[in-house]
Design a binder for these strands. Structure first.
Lengths: 163, 163
DNA sequence: GTAACAATTGTTATAAGATAACATTAATCA
DNA sequence: TGATTAATGTTATCTTATAACAATTGTTAC
């Protein structure tokens, strides 16, 4: 009997809630969620699909903020360190983490058509990878599990593409 | 009882053998393994660690060949299509496939220190991912599973870094 | 409060990875 | 052989990411 992981796409991402949680987490950890960092996190959560660094920069500039690539990348580095966002290496984009309280890597279903991403958290997969690694004396720092394909909507012929 | 996958690092990669097999596969499929494509595959296999596109281009130029980025990327696209190489998205590098005859995605243990990569093939992980996907009506095109960490040698304090 | 120090952000420049568009050459086939 | 397709050459450009240093802001000791 195989247990599937919880799904998170069904719970629509809530930017406000994510920001509140981030605030609390950073306070607990003694790290500083500055204006810039909070705003970057908010931009990521507000978008229906994950954004690249330069797309985030564009929004910051629309805000009237100054900024160059390092501005964004530094904020992203902080958010990654705090486990508040994930980076999807196959698309070079960033997505808000649905469960920032627990250390995890997550697995992602990425739609190539519309860019929508579903974050899973199947502990068996994570466990199996750790098992394979330790059987080879390999010390794991991070796992990247990304599944590329087509989401249900796009299979049905929806034509909206990622913005 | 969990079954671990075969390991491939123990079998040292053999460029000549890989090229022979590629030749046969392309012949069977009616695709053309041209001089350029064969040479790119050979360059990838000859290197102990996976190479990026521009590193491959450098070697081609050392050969005395003409070439620009598209030259390499087109050859890489062909080799990817034929399943003769894999692309590691977390490092933007390319590695020869140890079992090009069967359709698979593979899992990779990538050493952040020395760049060595071990290709696994744990069918359970692949199966679990397909299961998770189909439970969400997600149509899978490709899986990307990459584990970043430190290989046994580098844990023991070997200091050689990726070239 | 203020000086000293650390952390964050601003700024310029550039590195690294990838592709678009079109010209040229090589292979295949009627 | 000429027409057609596939592959490669070539130039330019786009996207992603980081290095290096300056300016600003926050924090702490006094």
């Amino acid at each position: 009997m195989i247990q599937l992981s919880d799904s998170y796409r069904s719970q629509p991402p809530d930017a406000r809630q994510a920001l509140e949680q981030a605030e609390i987490l950073c306070q607990q950890r003694g790290t500083r969620l500055t204006d810039l960092r909070r705003r970057v996190l908010e931009i990521i959560w507000n978008n229906p699909t994950p954004l690249g660094a330069y797309a985030i920069l564009d929004v910051l500039r629309d805000d009237g903020r100054q900024g160059a690539p390092p501005t964004v990348y530094r904020a992203l580095d902080f958010l990654l360190e705090q486990g508040l966002i994930h980076r999807l290496a196959s698309l070079n984009v960033f997505i808000g983490c649905r469960q920032p309280t627990c250390q995890h890597n997550g697995q992602f279903l990425i739609c190539r058509n519309c860019g929508q991403v579903d974050e899973l958290n199947n502990p068996t997969i994570e466990h199996l990878l750790r098992l394979e690694a330790s059987a080879r004396d390999f010390a794991v720092l991070a796992q990247m599990v990304e599944v590329l394909g087509h989401c249900p909507d796009c299979q049905r012929g929806a034509v909206s593409h990622a913005g």
